[in-house]
Design a protein around this nucleic acid. Structure first.
Lengths: 141, 141
DNA sequence: GTAATTATGGACCTGAAGGTCAACATAGGC
DNA sequence: GCCTATGTTGACCTTCAGGTCCATAATTAC
């Protein structure tokens, strides 16, 4: 349900957010988060294109957040790397009763909606603050 | 998030449940639910092995529920075809603070827990009853 | 300008999910 | 007993997420 890529992206964002504006290189992120460096590089490109992070090349370059951590949510990152497809209408092709869903798909979409809500409500800032300054992701380091 | 296979399995179960004990052949399910017949056959085998449904070969054979629809839940089916992996401990290999999760993984697991809860609470019976006897899956037929 | 350090871009590999197929096994009707 | 209708089994194909690699571009320090 939570793809490996999403897990990676969230780890990377949390690590960058911890640096509080100081650039963080792909190698540093890779070392700290156990994300394969080449894969991380590709992942970051998506986040740069989506303007979640900014990149800077050359010595002392790296990545910084392009959006303040109090505003950036898990949902923002999910939307970029692994969009959560809500169920808009019946997957069977038979003409639908307008926008209403059958009981089965109503329930399934409710589960998706609950997930979406939780993700929209959680900012990156909260992910840092809750750790009390210590133990950034689990007890990293 | 909701795999194609899970979607298929749930459609099949709902259709079988509607027959109320009368066997439903793979071909009938396939025709009604737009699931490719060969793939459905393979899918059903898993449900038979897990004793969610019973199968009967030969003329007038087919599939029937092995568990009453008031008892059978979405969760039962999910567990067979696409188990929802809860986050038990930090995915990073660094030794964990016992069973506690970091803020990030606490939130992710909360989303999984909410989904699990909804799935555990929903019986197949409810999926039929809510439709008022009509419109079995969306407005199938 | 040159060298070192970083990100970028594109080609490629791999394993697993989704999907197909054909040979086989079993049950019922005649 | 034979034929037909069904599910079962195992081999195979296809697509894509996850992952690797290398050449290139940009930036900084000297």
């Amino acid at each position: 349900m939570i793809s490996q890529t999403l897990e990676y992206a969230l780890r990377a964002i949390v690590l960058i957010a911890q640096r509080d504006g100081q650039p963080c290189t792909a190698r540093q992120i890779s070392d700290m988060s156990e994300i394969p460096l080449p894969y991380l590089s590709k992942l970051m490109q998506g986040l740069v294109k989506a303007q979640i992070v900014q990149s800077q090349r050359g010595p002392h370059g790296g990545f910084v957040l392009a959006i303040p951590p109090e505003v950036l949510t898990i949902w923002d990152i999910v939307s970029v790397v692994d969009p959560l497809q809500r169920i808009e209408h019946c997957p069977l092709k038979i003409r639908s009763h307008g926008t209403s869903l059958c009981p089965l798909h109503r329930r399934l979409d409710n589960a998706l909606a609950a997930t979406e809500k939780l993700f929209r409500e959680t900012t990156v800032d909260e992910l840092l603050a809750d750790s009390g300054g210590l133990t950034p992701l689990c007890e990293s380091r």
